[in-house]
């Protein structure tokens, strides 16, 4: 079995990659012109944050911290459906 200290050696490298991606995605969300581009960037941002939350739970070795992962992953689909429904209703009016 691989010891836990070996994981602690490589975990900062992995988490820093996802943190840099989170910052650049946030800049894209904050500077986007239209609603469609913003929601598309939020999709990628939330998927990135799901992976980051699993890595944080692995850092603390706690199973209770995994409780927010599955609702957050399904919220992406809910946001897409709600925004698309809003846009189509606005066109048909």
């Amino acid at each position: 079995m691989v010891s836990y200290e070996t994981l602690l050696g490589v975990l900062p490298v992995l988490m820093s990659l996802f943190t840099i991606a989170m910052i650049i995605y946030s800049i894209r969300v904050f500077t986007s012109k239209t609603l469609g581009s913003m929601v598309l960037a939020i999709d990628a941002l939330v998927v990135d944050l799901v992976v980051l939350m699993v890595l944080v739970a692995l850092y603390y070795k706690s199973a209770f911290l995994l409780i927010g992962v599955i609702p957050l992953a399904s919220w992406v689909f809910l946001l897409d459906v709600v925004v698309a429904r809003y846009l189509e209703k606005r066109w048909s009016k």
Binding site: D43, V50, A73, F77, L87
Partner: peptide, 17 residues
């Protein structure tokens, strides 16, 4: 969930836009 829902979500968003 990500493999099933994200392609469907971006497709429905493109249709709405």
């Amino acid at each position: 969930i990500i493999a099933l829902a994200t392609p469907a979500g971006s497709h429905i968003l493109a249709r709405g836009v």
